[in-house]
Design a protein around this nucleic acid. Sequence first.
DNA 1: CTGAAAGCGCTAACAA
DNA 2: TTGTTAGCGCTTTCAG
Lengths: 350, 350
Amino acid sequence: MNATIKDIALECCVSTATVSLALAGKKGRVSAETTTRILETAARLQYTPNRAAVSLATHHTKLVGVLMSDLRNTHIAQLFMAIEEVLQSHGYTLICHVLDDKTADIGRISSELNGSGVEGILYAHPIFLDPDESFYRIREFLNNAGVPIICNEDVGLTCAGMDVIFDFYQAGYLATRHLIECGHQVIGCVSGPANYRVSEQRLRGYRDALEEGSIAYDPKLVYYGDYSTAGAEPALSYLLGQKTTAIFSFNDEMAFALYRSAHQYGLSIPQDISVIGCDNVPFCNVLEVPLSTVHVPAEEMGREMAESLITAIEESHNKSRTQHIYAPALILRGSVNRRYADNATKLGKY
Amino acid sequence: MNATIKDIALECCVSTATVSLALAGKKGRVSAETTTRILETAARLQYTPNRAAVSLATHHTKLVGVLMSDLRNTHIAQLFMAIEEVLQSHGYTLICHVLDDKTADIGRISSELNGSGVEGILYAHPIFLDPDESFYRIREFLNNAGVPIICNEDVGLTCAGMDVIFDFYQAGYLATRHLIECGHQVIGCVSGPANYRVSEQRLRGYRDALEEGSIAYDPKLVYYGDYSTAGAEPALSYLLGQKTTAIFSFNDEMAFALYRSAHQYGLSIPQDISVIGCDNVPFCNVLEVPLSTVHVPAEEMGREMAESLITAIEESHNKSRTQHIYAPALILRGSVNRRYADNATKLGKY
DNA sequence: CTGAAAGCGCTAACAA
DNA sequence: TTGTTAGCGCTTTCAG
């Protein structure tokens, strides 16, 4: 059993109150000699405050709940690492929950979070569009947490905090427009699940870019994946069947599946099929034909989320809710074929 | 403020003890009617037990500390996800600490862990060979934790638990032997930091395989990286300067740097240089020339670690310490050139 | 400057 | 079956 302030008090022949005061460094409350004596025996006894007791007495836990999706996606891992670093450096301990796609256990997690006395929550998981049960439960959870929440999406929360969001609509627009500018006319996309709001945002960007380019939107040209490489395995074969010459993948991870399939079919990127991704994970650069993509500043966003949360926790008088929106940037590498653009110019075909 | 058992007791006109008993589901201790009445008002009041209070009273936290290295490495993320899943499903909450390479803050983390009352620790971070300060502090920490620890390496701990370790020596041996069997004679390697035991183990495997193949070990043929892609960036150029025809990279992540450099120099794998990695992360398969590698069963190991820890926590009478050693398996793909082997046969050159 | 005492929310004997 | 009581380790008035 660890040493307690009682042990120290006994050794130093003072009361536990004095020990507590001295340890807390309340200057002027305890004499210098007593303080040093207490500090010394505390060190000797390897005293560590019992957090449960401290929390119980102070209602202060220095605990933050982090709700994330699958970290095997490098982009998510980047976000998480940035969060961890900031929280760590500010003395917060992080309680980590990975949510699966169903988020069916949001009820359990929410009560766990309540009970564990987290002082704030970082929510970095897709929000659903369809108003099914899990949707309502998440909304309810986010709104009733009673502690500051920083959210990865705009969810119109009632409590204090900041939404750190990325403009996925713009990302979808930019990626698609680039493809159009390169002369592509039949542009497929590999979407995430249809009921994720972040999917819908990208899809709108994609559609608006098409419209701007006077290309009709064809629902058959969108393949619905799940943001994982494995789930996007059939995408290429499907989209090729639709005669697409270029594909906007809603994240890099799924674009990698396109690469893999392309090799399997003996097709080359970008000669036979152009691909653009989204996220800009480091692996894009490892590919023989580096993946053109849309940069999402995961680490900056993670830092911003964590810092905002700490601010919200420590200045809890500030009850307003604000937003920080990050803009996308195109990263052009080698995976999009410009030949079509040349054709367009040379032949006046389109 | 959340509802407490006191609130429930007041509403139900019973004592807090009765509420506690009823909520704990101790059958036979509280009458059926009272129990349902209590359960109902608990639900109505949205009662959630205060964990701090429970821990304080029971010395039971359902908290597990997880010490990991950088999760941006997919292999580590895989390990982590498996751990998280098992812990989650057994009702444990996980407190996550990412250690940096210095692990300089092991002191702070260790006291944080002690104070937070974790019931067990999962340690998945490289152990250092050189007996410098951080080495001793980690050893001390691991040995004095006072709770079961499951470790990723054999560290000869005194407390209960199981080491879930991977035979990196064998991994190094197999990878190198494969390269030799393919006819390579000048085989470089991209090591991790020299003072990591896992590096040293692989290096021994590499040396023993060379010796078995009657190839002299040349220290100039080992490039020391840091297990990250970025850190291995100069490796290829260096090793090419040493006339190597094949490279064993101590993990896939660094092998990716080799790929990237190869593209930059206009070299192809495996025609100009053969590469074999270690870990077998999913990206290996995305590369145009899939990376041959040594499979490390991250997810199985993660599950095993978490399950062993739970067993150790729940049957803390079992004070023995055991080991589970995982064996490597070669995964042969396209990144190693066999031409040298043919030459060897045809020309009898070697 | 220091100590006594109460209380944070819960559990666990022991009585009744 | 239920209530009383004490206590987990710490903080924090309030007296002294």
